[in-house]
Nucleic acid binder design. Structure first.
Lengths: 340, 340
DNA sequence: AATAATACCTTATGCGCAAAAGGTGTACTG
DNA sequence: CAGTACACCTTTTGCGCATAAGGTATTATT
């Protein structure tokens, strides 16, 4: 690896001159010298040492992407299609802006923050944080932060957040179900925090605004861990007998439930209607094709990254950015049969 | 961010002493001093500046993961479930070893290599490289390299490669199909390079060893790009009428074909048998559930990363490591009906 | 008692880069 | 023609860290 110093020596000039050429400071260097240096740079294929540059500049050109791991559905967060698509959008934006991405995955926020500090990252993208985590992070870290899909418990936004209109998405879908005549509609999720809670709220509002009541038994809690999932799905199928439809908090759950139902001889949408949320490949490539709420996950990642980049660049951005949802009507939600 | 220098000043000692404590060089420092320094380090929550450390040490603790992007099925490589699962395994191993992962995604090998040089990464994991790319990379980069799923055209392995017994996996599946009475078996893929070629070879060997002949019209070339996929699937469905079964090079294609067939009223496996490869969620959550060749993608990532880490640590490793495949018999390949 | 070894310090140096500060000579201004 | 602006250089400094080299006691060895 050749250094600026070495180049300067070979060319019989100072390192500053070489450095100036590299940084395009044309006013400081004569055209003739620029030519000499540029030719030589190309000849030896000079590549700067980023560690040295960062040290001198006190910046890093790194965007930290911190994912709080939940020991949950997937052994590794990246295996969640939602996460990988999100990261896909983020990575692309960061790379296009000339930055680098460093991924920090851990369930331990303090560990993540130590690593972020150690690399002196220029900005931070947070996913999967709850309210109190966020507060701790913001105390430790003074550079720009953008959260993704973060609802704080008290509804207070401590930082910029890029999210989705989850509440409305779910509201629209449940409304649509009710329009088709469904009365007993269950809501299925593994928890009721953050995003899932917002969707749940949309579900309840749709019931309420249509004069339908909600009771505890209409919440289907799925246990998605490998060791529980089969038993959990059995339970759900059993409970589903009394229902017209199920609003699932994600496509994955919707498809899993549909498979379990089919294996038991229950037909969707003839016997029961099922809706998903997210509009993933899984639902698109199922038959019957899944009726679901579309969100552009990649776009969410892109938006989060560009917002962060804007903030790093000193631009002002809104504190809350919400992407819209759209209904994708396919084949798993149909009009309720009268005779049921 | 507090520095060693500052700590030394506060504690009235030299930076070397502080540095020695940080690195656990207990022989060089008196127990009393160690205690003082350690307490102070904790108190101020000292975090080292990795840029400075790397510069001084000429190492980086970074593993570069270079993905050669193909402008192909997915707009962004990370959206490919295979890739994200692979990265999931890699990331986990790297993190557990105390290293950091930096992702380089580009279709331009030279650009990737410049970035790898600029960060002075300690080792390189390569995915999606063809033979000639690999040769160029190895000329530019002298630190340990491990390839994933790389078949060189001439069969020469220039570096350590972690792969799969693709040929045998496909051979076994096609053999199984033939045992069930299938005679006209198509092979479906988007190309015949690298991994896909190995699978294709297994397919042809199975035909040959069972006395069946192969002709060009038995190769179904799918065009997976968004703008082509529907037309391509229509063609394939049309051509499929003459066949007993299709061996698909991936689960994704298998499921896509099954959906297209179903939409045209063709039943799997009654009218035609379909097999996939990879054993992804997509096949598991389809009905009928996909018969496929299992590989552990995560394990592949883990193995590649640990092999690279071993090499960085100076250990010797085999030059070629192949993971085994297993047949997953589900519902999309059944005995051929006599009357056809 | 002379020498060697050891324990525990500090000072000094350099990694590669960017930039502040400090030249020198030429052209331009009034 | 003094004064000033500017073009084009170089020297020097420091980012934070690791470590080689250099101390000074104190203890062990013969």
């Amino acid at each position: 690896m050749i250094t600026i110093k070495e180049i300067a020596k070979q060319l019989n000039m100072s390192t500053t001159t070489v450095s100036n050429v590299i940084h395009g400071k044309t006013k400081e260097v004569s055209p003739a010298t620029i030519k000499i240096v540029e030719d030589y740079l190309k000849q030896v294929d000079y590549v700067p040492n980023i560690n040295a540059r960062n040290l001198a500049q006190n910046e890093s050109k790194i965007i930290g992407v911190a994912l709080k791991a939940r020991a949950d559905k997937y052994e590794n967060l990246l295996m969640d299609p939602f996460v990988s698509e999100l990261i896909g959008g983020i990575e692309e934006s960061i790379r296009n802006a000339g930055y680098f991405m460093m991924l920090y995955i851990s369930s331990d926020i303090d560990k993540i923050m130590r690593q972020v500090s150690t690399w002196n990252v220029d900005g931070l993208l947070l996913f999967g944080m709850l309210g109190d985590d966020g507060i701790r992070v913001s105390q430790k870290y003074k550079k720009p932060i953008v959260c993704i899909d973060t609802y704080t418990i008290e509804g207070i936004k401590h930082f910029v957040n890029v999210g989705l209109d989850d509440e409305k998405g779910c509201f629209d879908m449940v409304n649509y179900m009710i329009e088709l005549g469904h009365k007993k509609i269950a809501f299925l999720s593994d928890n009721l925090n953050g995003v899932d809670y917002a969707r749940f709220s949309g579900y309840k509002r749709a019931l309420k605004e249509n004069g339908l009541s909600f009771s505890e038994d209409m919440f289907f809690k799925i246990r998605p861990r490998k060791e529980d999932i089969d038993e959990s799905l059995d339970e759900i199928c059993e409970r589903a007998k009394d229902f017209d439809a199920i609003m699932c908090v994600s496509d994955l759950y919707a498809v899993q439930v549909m498979c379990a139902l089919k294996d038991k001889g229950v037909n969707v949408p003839e016997d029961i209607s099922i809706a998903g949320f997210d509009d993933t490949l899984l639902g698109q490539l199922h038959r019957p094709a899944l009726t679901t709420v579309h969100q552009s996950v990649k776009e969410k990642g892109v938006l989060a990254a560009t917002t962060l980049l804007d903030r790093i660049g000193g631009k002002k951005t809104p504190k809350q950015i919400s992407l819209p949802t759209t209904l994708v009507i396919r084949d798993t939600v149909k009009a309720r049969k009268k005779e049921k």
